[in-house]
Write a protein that binds this DNA or RNA. Structure first.
Lengths: 348, 348
DNA sequence: TAATAATGCGTTATCGAACCCCATATATTA
DNA sequence: TAATATATGGGGTTCGATAACGCATTATTA
């Protein structure tokens, strides 16, 4: 079904059909009805190739993420996925512009968001780790489509949110902790961004697993990037001889792991953390980390880009929420690379 | 960079540029060189929209899979992923044709493959579970692009293979078995297609984990679809009082699980199997299955379709091998739906 | 009533690539 | 030398959607 076929069937010109389809007015009500009937009956879908050829427009996605080169490699994994999608979609006139912000400074989000808007993006892909600033930024551009990754932002209307249930992730981590170190004792929970939704929920999920198991105690600890959080860990280990495991709610687990190994307490301590960043991969291979929960960060970035593209370029309506499965990574299923790249050819 | 820009820069007509690009001859050697220099310098890429609009051709992918409505729901999950990709890509002129074959009958693959070829597909997406017949089929159509899912086919040259390492999967299953049931004893390994590459390798991986752990014994059992494999399980349970766990190398684990529960032996037996088909999901929720390994079947089908599309329509070079991570599914991270199950609701 | 505005609908150029036809220019042969 | 063959390149059309433009016809206002 093409516009000219519709025009022929309706005994009007293609210009009229076009005016009906785009609601540009100047068409008699009867003619509109006649055309729309045919459109509906035949299920007309505009030809994507013709449409985009004529419009001849780049679709630019503005990406707004926390500092990529911070010590939290997680954001780089997300960025990898975004880049991969952008590369695949570049022949389809999709491009990205990137801006970073300092997640410890809400003003930074607004400033860099404004800078990003100067590139005139058609949509925004962002991680709403700073809820208020994120809302404020989006409120300034009410017509803009946007998608969220990493965490949701309630009461907003994104094209799509690609997220993982953090409570469930923490609960899963606790289950693995229990499996890997069944003996009763104390578990240490370490956070770095205590106010962050994901961190908080993961810790809550972890604790929730052990509710009703009185033999297992939990001890919470906050560790800043800047301070020597190591001191507190050492202190906790001294004061609690029965520490069986440490759960770090984000990708910083390798730092804790290295320190625990240094203290010589690795053999009696199970370490569980988040995300397959290189340092965590390495720490796991060295036996310093026992289990990682992955939230498939590259998948998140990759998928969010595709969802925005499908909405805009193909006119499809993406799933409002894409819930990323909670991946359990143990040394036995730790592969060299994530599914986004080629693996050594073991099949010959 | 467009054809006409190249033409302008080279002081020739667009017709000449076109003849150079398509090597259709009738161009002076000097002109060819002049044009190609510009093409290379500016990195000319043909406009996908213009190209496909003009060619106005459907890209049809022929899908050749084992019977979808057999009791092995795994193939349906793969098919779901293929369908999802096909729906997303339908506005980009991609379509699929499906044929099924009986994996117990190699001739059936050839017959249904021939039937599929009558639809004149531009590429084939198949599961080479019958290596010889698959080779024979592909040999009949030497010019055809193809991709493999489920398992690889050595010495072939597919556009892409989307597979999981079955040895490693079996090894992982053993590790989980060991974690969930640490006590020494006997483990039962149940296969249904003993000759199948994946089955065999998974069993081998499982056994390999326990090599060097003399306290753990393995007992292998073959169970056909047709016979009452249950008899053998019952017999094995009678003869071996120390059976701690059962590993089923494919999605049939729910059958075994149901039977073990019926025998009243579930509480002392850990059950591990493959894939998130509905019955297994249900069995896990009911506590009849303890752990599942997922090979992300919908991802496999989905990705393979996209790889073929990217090669043909976008001229991209896909990864030769895409290795699917080994997913561990426990009741705690069993979600209601896979991330691939929800479809855009606009598609008609 | 004349001037002007509003309405309805058809025509046409455009996007970039593909491909065919035809007009020259040059080479070859009778 | 003239006729014919061949090499080379120019130009036009097509794919389908979009939107500007133009031309009637009718409605509204001065």
């Amino acid at each position: 079904m093409t516009i000219s076929e519709i025009a022929r069937l309706a005994n009007v010109s293609i210009g009229t059909v076009d005016r009906v389809l785009h609601k540009r007015g100047r068409v008699a009500p009867d003619t509109i009805k006649k055309v729309m009937t045919i459109v509906d009956d035949y299920g007309y879908q505009p030809n994507t190739f013709a449409r985009n050829l004529k419009l001849n427009k780049e679709y630019r996605i503005g990406v707004l993420l926390p500092l990529l080169h911070s010590e939290y490699g997680y954001w780089n994994l997300i960025y990898d996925g975004i880049l991969k999608a952008a590369k695949e979609l570049s022949p389809l006139a999709v491009s990205i512009s990137v801006a970073e912000f300092d997640r410890s400074n809400p003003d930074s989000l607004l400033e860099n968001g404004d800078k990003l808007m100067q590139e005139e993006p058609d949509a925004i892909l962002m991680a709403p780790v700073l809820p208020d600033a994120s809302r404020a930024f989006l409120a300034k551009h009410p017509q803009l489509d946007y998608a969220f990754i990493d965490s949701p932002l309630p009461d907003m209307n994104p094209v799509s949110s690609v997220v993982q249930d953090p409570f469930r992730g923490g609960y899963m981590a606790a289950r693995m902790m229990h499996l890997l170190s069944p003996q009763e004792g104390t578990y240490l929970i370490i956070q770095t961004h205590k106010t962050a939704f994901n961190s908080h929920e993961r810790a809550r999920g972890f604790k929730s697993y052990f509710t009703g198991r009185p033999g297992y105690k939990r001890l919470e600890l906050e560790m800043q990037t800047t301070n020597g959080g190591e001191i507190f860990i050492e202190q906790a280990c001294r004061e609690h001889a029965d520490i069986r495991g440490i759960f770090v709610v984000n990708d910083a687990v390798h730092r804790v792991a290295t320190f625990v190994s240094l203290l010589g307490r690795k053999s009696q301590t199970i370490l569980i953390g988040y995300d397959l960043i290189d340092q965590n991969r390495k720490a796991m291979l060295e036996g310093k980390v026992d289990c990682l929960i992955s939230q498939r960060p590259n998948f998140q970035g990759y998928t969010a880009v595709y969802q925005l593209y499908r909405k805009e370029m193909l006119g499809q309506t993406p799933e409002k929420t894409i819930c990323v499965p909670i991946d359990i990574v143990l040394p036995e299923n730790l592969t060299d690379e994530e599914s986004f790249s080629t693996l050594p050819n073991t099949y010959t």
